[in-house]
Design a protein around this nucleic acid. Sequence first.
DNA 1: CGCATGATTGAAGTATATCAATAGTGGTGG
DNA 2: CCACCACTATTGATATACTTCAATCATGCG
Lengths: 258, 258
Amino acid sequence: MTVKPHSVDKSRSMNEFKCDNCGLLSLCLPDGLKPQEAEQLEKMIEKSPPLKKGSYIFHQGDPFTSIFEVRAGSLKTYTVTNQGEEQITGFYFPGDLIALNAIDTSSYPISAKVLETTTVCEIPYGQLDRLSDQVPRLRRQLIRAMSKEIREEQQMMLLLSKKTAEERVATFLLKLSDRYKRRGYSASIFRLSMSRNEIGNYLGLAVETVSRIFSRFQKQHLIRVEGKEIEVLSLDTLRQISGEIRSDDHSADAINLS
Amino acid sequence: MTVKPHSVDKSRSMNEFKCDNCGLLSLCLPDGLKPQEAEQLEKMIEKSPPLKKGSYIFHQGDPFTSIFEVRAGSLKTYTVTNQGEEQITGFYFPGDLIALNAIDTSSYPISAKVLETTTVCEIPYGQLDRLSDQVPRLRRQLIRAMSKEIREEQQMMLLLSKKTAEERVATFLLKLSDRYKRRGYSASIFRLSMSRNEIGNYLGLAVETVSRIFSRFQKQHLIRVEGKEIEVLSLDTLRQISGEIRSDDHSADAINLS
DNA sequence: CGCATGATTGAAGTATATCAATAGTGGTGG
DNA sequence: CCACCACTATTGATATACTTCAATCATGCG
């Protein structure tokens, strides 16, 4: 099932794949690159064949060679503790970059496992690094992506350290909703590509707790759950529960003191 | 008490400060820079006067201008939730870089508050970014530092999500020990610059729990606590408790134990 | 020095985990 | 295409690690 980085199919026919809508150029590189720069980048990138659910992009401990970008589908990354427990460190969707945490190491500190049929782009880091010398914009985009990742993980620390189970689940659903929305999909109806178990693992909760809270939210008509299908019925209420008030901009928002 | 970034004293006499032992050149930039490169970097960096305990390097929401490096002392960074709760995201010691999470934002997403008399170097990011164009090594070091930060936060996620209170405290002490050791101080005797409250906040525990576990560890002769003074009596046992077995080869790639 | 703040220790409460049992899903091969 | 089986999800009952509340003790700063 494992697909090693180097085993990514390099024999794709030319032009079958264009980086035009590649995340490193769009989502991850919002400023865009000049056509010429884009071409250089494109040359070094290899697109994987569709990877089946359960296959690995890389395993924890594998020698680090490349970062990856999700093109389609979704995946999870996780570390394994010495006790053999798995801790999911993130879920990734099209446009997201993976393995930014491996850049200054010799081997991947996490595993990346595909949640549904997924394609990724492999970006050999050595080449990216070299190209960065010539294309400052590329370097900037990489740094931006990393900075963002740091912030998101700090948000996770806050979630894991301070939030109740309900707040966690609400936050999780909102985050998903937002990510789908940014990608042009519905913000209110989507399909969870991860299991309840994986959600619980990620959120620091038992499966049963996740399940119970889904049921509770459904009873309160905040969401409609049907297996992996989720419909968010009240983003606003969910936002209140999540503890992220996010008053969009007029942020004079009073302290919501309880 | 607040010291805004722009208010950092720029009127220091020349040569009172040398970057030779600056973390961006040493700890954070292990490969080192060529003398000429170092000089360029040095020119843009402003060293703060000693900042007193309780003062701020920057506040959450302040416009982002610079990253900072701790030169002496220590500080904490934290976010504030909408409910007004504080979540500490990290403790920083000499050589550590702060505000790597702000690079792609217009304002600092965290506050940085000094825990004891501390000096920092201010590195205006615009200038650093420009210099990075000319000095690839600099860019690489920045990226390395960020990659490492991402990994450390993932370790924190694991800690917060999977570890028991005892494991958390043990892990915390080991991490501190390791950081002091790397800086040339004793790995077994050191002074906690943060309060029990701050430790608890960081580890996702109540103060009382931290206190109790300190007492318990002391009773088991794993540590000796006397206020803020800590002596680690059995690194090995602590390591076992921490859940990070680390088959201890003193590796460069050491488990980035958080 | 003295008082506010931080630390410790004990007792009681609670959110969530764990255990357990049932129900639902989806993938596979006959 | 259906039937089967393993896996995943749901729901309830019980257990527990940690929090919260409370009271005392220590510390260090003005």
